[in-house]
């Protein structure tokens, strides 16, 4: 309990409680939908960060894992009646396996090979999804996309009329992922990854099996991306290969993570939160002039990158330290 008295502990707890309490104040389904999407992007950027940030291996094809998860759970549900609650794990495992298969031959190589392999693999996967209309008797829709059967309110199949359950679902997923990342960051694996990212030769010399460590990171990252894909599928209920497996998805994830602060635990999530909100707000507010919202969005991003090249996380760190110091000082006074 004594630890809870320190702002370093009670502040995050307060923040989490606030996130959980949000649906009590925000009743509009639209705002809840946007918040769910914001958390989705924060989640995706955090998942990418495991391989892209911690391990420092630029993956430009996470869309493929998102799609793998989304398609796996949706097909299993539509044709075998397996609830997406289970499909979520199966989808994650399929995506993880894909991450492993892409990483296995390429993560042994240095330099741009892994990045190239991920681009090539994701593009290939997108083309396969686009041109495959059937798997056996299962219709996948090809380029026309796949629609998840609308059931109305069916909690056992992860479909809800209200937006509140979606919000809580992605919030819980997000928090779990952040905790895992925190754990990785402080674990042996985290130190291996840091060593590898900073200087691969030195890490090798220290006896770290860098190829294996990279592979673990890539597989974990793909697994969580796949789980996120299942959430996307259930929220939007329509899978279009170009939108979900294409460069738009892959690049967006990388972009959010880098602007937010690659390699830190909370940076990518912050990027996802801030940039998605800004994108949404500018689109709604400045929709009178065509394309203006993208211009403003781009301008803000340029400013962020120029002034905070290490990521938006710098803002947060400064703010955080200030707040903690302030609170600690106040408490100190009280004690005196």
């Amino acid at each position: 309990m004594a630890r809870l008295a320190s702002p370093r502990y009670y502040l995050p707890v307060l923040l989490i409680l606030l996130l959980f309490a949000l649906p009590l104040f925000v009743k509009s389904p639209y705002y809840l939908h946007i918040m769910a999407m914001v958390l989705f992007w924060a989640y995706m950027a955090t998942a990418w960060n495991i391989v892209g940030g911690f391990a420092g291996q630029l993956s430009l094809g996470h869309g493929a894992y998102v799609a793998a998860g989304a398609y796996t759970s949706s097909l299993l549900f539509a044709y075998l009646g397996i609830s997406p609650w289970f499909g979520m794990f199966i989808g994650g495992l399929v995506a993880g396996l894909m991450g492993f298969l892409v990483g296995y031959p390429t993560l042994r190589l240095r330099g741009a090979y892994y990045a190239l392999a991920t681009v090539g693999f994701a593009e290939g996967f997108r083309v396969i999804l686009t041109n495959t209309t059937h798997i056996g008797k299962w219709k996948t829709g090809g380029a026309e996309g796949f629609m998840i059967p609308l059931l109305g309110n069916a909690p056992q199949h992860m479909q809800f009329i209200s937006k509140v359950p979606y919000y809580y679902l992605i919030l819980v997923l997000f928090l779990i992922l952040v905790l895992i990342c925190r754990w990785i960051d402080g674990s042996k694996l985290g130190y291996y990854l840091t060593a590898l990212r900073e200087d691969e030769d030195a890490a090798l010399a220290l006896g770290i099996n860098t190829a294996r460590v990279k592979l673990v990171a890539a597989t974990l990252s793909a697994f969580f991306a796949g789980v996120g894909g299942v959430f996307y599928a259930q929220l939007i209920r329509y899978l279009e290969p170009n939108a979900i497996a294409g460069p738009i998805m892959s690049n967006q994830i990388v972009f959010l993570a880098i602007v937010g602060g690659r390699g830190t635990v909370l940076g990518p999530a912050l990027g996802g939160l801030v940039l998605t909100l800004i994108g949404e707000i500018t689109r709604v507010v400045f929709n009178q002039i065509m394309g203006l919202h993208l211009f403003l969005y781009g301008l803000l991003v340029v400013l962020f990158v120029i002034f905070k090249p290490r990521g938006l996380i710098e803002f947060l760190e400064v703010l955080w330290n200030r707040l903690v110091n302030l609170l600690e000082r106040r408490e100190g006074k009280h004690a005196a």
């Binding site: 939908h33 999407m37 996309g145 939007i236 329509y238 939108a243």
Partner: peptide, 10 residues
């Protein structure tokens, strides 16, 4: 984009 279309419809 399908997801943006959904958000706007909401």
């Amino acid at each position: 984009d399908p997801a943006t279309g959904v958000a706007e419809a909401e």
